[in-house]
Amino acid sequence: MIKFKYNRQTLLLFLLLIPFVGLAHDVTSADQEILRTGGLWAYIRVGATHMLTGYDHLLFLAGVIFYLNSFKDILKFITVFTIGHCITLIGATYTGITADEHLVDAVIALSVLYKGFENLGGFEKLNIKSPNLLVMVGLFGLIHGFGLSTRLQSFDMGEGQFLAKILCFNLGVEVGQVLALIPITFIITLARKQEQFPAFYKAVNWYLVLAGIALFVYQLYGYFTGH
């Protein structure tokens, strides 16, 4: 009974944190103002804000951490994800390569769906060998980085200190990622100790699947309708 109570508290804590996730990307016009007037610090701040309020990135990270049991694994996978998104964030922004934001975000939505599906043992149920998770996390890191790059490029970055601005934004993203990972890891670690963790695990990962599908459809709708 007590364990169940704890479990409910964990669930409650998780649900309470969703609003922060739900702030997703509500940072644009204000961000442009910050970038316009705030110098390089502004890029760090906006990068961190974007990561902290980007539901797609956080959902994917939550999915990755759900699958991992040890801190060492978490560190390894997050490092690979970070390297991946740094490559495309810096490279694509610096070279001015971008794509339609809706399409990029649609692929990122698929990464959320993928992670939920994998965590639920979807590949095993289909008798398909699941791809190497580390490789997939690296690949999705590249895609998430490209999404961050398209977002950064949608802002007016002014002229001068172009590379420095990109690097500062990237630094902000990493800061935001660390800040986001702390509560995510804490909640998941706490939840693991609870008796009802399997139900919680399934609930959250099914939610990732559903959220991934919904976001994917939403982004495609945006792409085809121009909204």
Partner: peptide, 19 residues
């Protein structure tokens, strides 16, 4: 945002109860 937040809370809560 409120749609996303409310929807997420409801879905996870319902799924948790279900499982």
């Amino acid at each position: 945002t409120w749609v996303f937040v409310l929807g997420s809370v409801l879905i996870i809560g319902l799924l948790f109860i279900l499982f």
